[in-house]
Simulated assay, not measured.
Amino acid sequence: MTRIFSRSEISKALELNGCRSKARDQINKRMDEIRSQFITPITGQQMIYMAKEAEALAYVAASVEPSTETGWEQDYPFIAGEVGSTGSSAYEVAQVFMNLASQWRYIGAQLEKVRIETLQAVGLAQSQADIDAALSQFEAALGGLGG
């Protein structure tokens, strides 16, 4: 007599949860690769980008006229440090910082939307086929963003 063993619902759910976890890791790793095309992936660099943007916004809002007497370099060290390389004046450097932040905000928001939607689809997946479909849609969406 042949016995037929069927897997329990718990066993199936555990396997699916493992597949979901692997898919989430894959999504986040791939997103890290894509983001690295747009921002420098060194430790702490994101904080520097945010500080540069904040400094540039404050500089432009204050309408500072740089001079050695005002000590503006202490208030705007990132801008002061890049005058002559990133731009020929403090105002040009501030503009570059703001433009780069704006460009990143645009692409970053699009990438994050795709990542979150895919993670949600994986979380709701009822099978490995659903997970595979979500991952395929993820890659297609990244391709549409230039990734």
Rank of each mutant, 00 (worst) to 15 (best):
T2E: 12
R3H: 15
I4E: 09
S6C: 10
R7T: 11
R7Q: 14
R7S: 09
S8P: 02
S8V: 08
S8W: 10
E9I: 08
I10A: 15
I10P: 04
L14Y: 04
L14F: 08
N17E: 13
G18I: 03
K22N: 10
K22R: 08
K22D: 09
A23C: 03
R24I: 06
D25P: 02
Q26L: 11
N28A: 07
N28C: 07
M31T: 04
M31P: 01
D32N: 14
D32G: 14
I34G: 00
I34Y: 00
I34P: 01
Q37D: 10
I39G: 00
I39C: 02
I42W: 00
I42A: 05
G44L: 00
Q46F: 05
Q46E: 06
Q46H: 05
I48P: 00
M50W: 14
A51V: 02
E53Q: 07
E55S: 03
A56W: 02
A61S: 07
A61G: 08
P66T: 03
P66R: 04
S67P: 01
T68R: 10
E69Q: 06
T70E: 10
G71F: 09
G71V: 04
E73P: 05
Q74D: 09
P77K: 05
P77A: 05
I79D: 03
A80P: 00
E82I: 08
E82T: 06
V83Q: 08
G84R: 05
G84I: 03
S85T: 14
G87F: 06
S89K: 06
S89W: 13
E92H: 06
E92R: 05
F97N: 04
N99Y: 07
A101W: 00
S102V: 03
R105F: 08
Y106W: 08
I107D: 01
G108N: 01
G108Q: 01
A109E: 07
A109V: 02
L119P: 01
L119E: 10
A121D: 06
A121Y: 04
A121R: 09
A121T: 07
L124A: 14
Q126F: 11
S127I: 08
S127G: 05
S127P: 15
A129Q: 10
D132M: 13
A133K: 13
S136K: 13
Q137K: 13
E139Q: 15
G143F: 07
G144E: 14
